[in-house]
Write a protein that binds this DNA or RNA. Structure first.
Length: 338
DNA sequence: AAAGTCTTCAACCGCCGGCGA
DNA sequence: CTCGCCGGCGGTTGAAGACTT
């Protein structure tokens, strides 16, 4: 593994993988003198390396307190949770995981966790459902490059998403997409003075979908739509426009086929978490889903992908839902309109 | 069995902020 | 204030190994 030297020597300094002899020289020197001045260290230790290379080798590999081996479930949970809070602040995350280096965590994130989240339909950057599941980003991008919003152009793409392209199934539930589309096709949602019955019917259909909870899983996605209000101007954000979380939502959990179903199974506990309390960094206030029945790594990998929504994601989503809940007035508005 | 493709991760690079001169 | 040095950080690379065709 590792990178080979791009040039054997540059200013007389070696690059590339470290040999056991070099490692021993570095260890011996630091054990004897400690590490302080990385610039002068290699010369004093008899190494043909730059100080940066020595520091990297020591902090990422030779340090005696480095923990080796596979990340535990708890470590992984912590990484995901911290990442949802801090983003790619690998050194800050590493500071909370004794024995793990920022480089190791970064690698683990990129090769394991990130992929797993993507597989689950979660955007690993925002920790919300992926916008690109809808392939909407490309639509929005093309709108950007066209500089003006073309109503018909968008509908062409939307129809592809809704109908499939002859080779693939539609990407999303067409009713939901119709509703989403209708939201973005208008300056505002219909009100009591709106006389276009067709549009009102569209909203009616979309609103009915909300009743079975499925739309809830798309709220974060739709809110990302809202960031493009300048392109597709609306008076309010999508979040503002949508009805609130229905009060009888619990009845619908079992009906949902959403990828976010695990969220729903934990909503009860999430919603009782005081919104003012800080997100627990060690997840102690939220019970871990037990995967101990999975014996092999592969089984666990599969288990995580299929069943486990991380506590951080639940926490994130609970925040969103709590935010959405305050739009009860909007729901009342819809009730009046429809 | 061989060739092609994918995955992993150690190590590099460039950039940035802190600090002293 | 500016400059240079240094440590530290996050993104990226690419060889080696694993896996697939």
């Amino acid at each position: 593994m590792g990178r080979s030297p791009c040039c054997e020597k540059k200013n007389g300094l070696k690059k590339g993988p470290w040999t056991p002899e070099e490692d021993q020289k570095l260890i011996d020197y630091i054990n004897k003198h400690g590490y302080g001045n990385w610039r002068t260290l290699p010369k004093n230790a008899g190494l043909q390396r730059c100080g940066k290379s020595c520091r990297l080798r020591w902090t990422n590999y030779l340090r005696p307190d480095i923990k080796r081996g596979r990340f535990s479930f708890e470590e992984e949970e912590t990484i995901i949770q911290l990442h949802s809070i801090m983003g790619n602040k690998w050194s800050a995350i590493a500071a909370r995981l004794p024995g793990r280096t920022d480089n190791e965590i970064k690698n683990y994130w990129n090769t394991h966790i990130r992929k797993r989240l993507l597989k689950m339909g979660i955007d690993p950057v925002t920790h919300t459902p992926r916008l690109d599941l809808l392939d909407i980003s490309s639509i929005l991008s093309s709108s950007i490059y066209n500089s003006t919003y073309h109503h018909h152009h968008q509908h062409m793409n939307m129809s592809r998403l809704m109908m499939g392209d002859g080779h693939h199934q539609p990407l999303v539930n067409p009713e939901i997409l119709k509703f989403a589309t209708s939201l973005f096709s208008n300056q505002n949602y219909p009100n009591n003075t709106h006389d276009n019955q067709t549009e009102v019917n569209q909203y009616q259909t979309g609103y009915n979908m909300i009743g079975n909870q499925e739309l809830l899983s798309w709220l974060p996605i739709m809110d990302q739509f809202a960031e493009f209000q300048d392109l597709m101007p609306m008076k309010t954000t999508v979040q503002d426009s949508l009805p609130s979380f229905p009060s009888n939502h619990e009845d619908d959990y079992s009906k949902s086929n959403s990828v976010l179903e695990p969220y729903y199974s934990d909503f009860a506990s999430v919603l009782t978490t005081p919104s003012s309390s800080p997100t627990p960094l060690n997840s102690s206030s939220i019970t871990y889903i037990n995967s101990s029945t999975c014996s092999t790594d592969d089984e666990k990998e599969s288990y995580y992908s299929n069943n486990v929504m991380s506590t951080s994601e639940i926490a994130d989503y609970s925040f969103d839902v709590n935010g959405f809940l305050q739009f009860q007035e909007t729901k009342n508005h819809w009730d009046r309109v429809l």
